[in-house]
């Protein structure tokens, strides 16, 4: 449990600090206008990178589960609950 919390802390810092830096570094160069089209579509592509990565993991897991634990799989064995009153 403690380890998990430590891990989370490290991860959070790794993400938050660079973002904060980015925020305060930007906007100094006043001459070029911000291109909203590029900024917003970039955000979209970043989000889709995350979504499709996580999606690959989740649906990969789901497909593997379905394949591995279907009752017709040769490796399928009865669960310890079968025939009991759970």
């Amino acid at each position: 449990m403690d380890k998990t919390i430590a891990l989370m802390l490290v991860l959070t810092i790794l993400v938050v600090l660079p973002t904060v830096q980015l925020v305060f570094a930007a906007g100094t160069d006043a001459h070029e206008y911000v291109n909203r089209k590029i900024e917003i579509w970039n955000l979209f592509f970043k989000m889709m990178t995350i979504a499709f990565t996580v999606g690959a993991v989740v649906s990969g897991t789901l497909i593997w589960l379905v394949w591995r634990f279907r009752e017709s799989n040769p490796n399928a064995k009865p669960t310890k609950y079968e025939g009991t009153d759970w």
């Binding site: 917003i40 579509w41 955000l43 989000m47 979504a51 649906s59």
Partner: peptide, 25 residues
């Protein structure tokens, strides 16, 4: 099980929707 798979996709889209600038698109 099909519903769970689609639930995930719907949720991922929801996170994107929450990102306020994306709303302009």
């Amino acid at each position: 099980v099909g519903g769970i798979a689609l639930f995930f996709s719907a949720g991922a889209g929801g996170v994107a929707n929450a990102a306020m600038p994306f709303d302009f698109i």
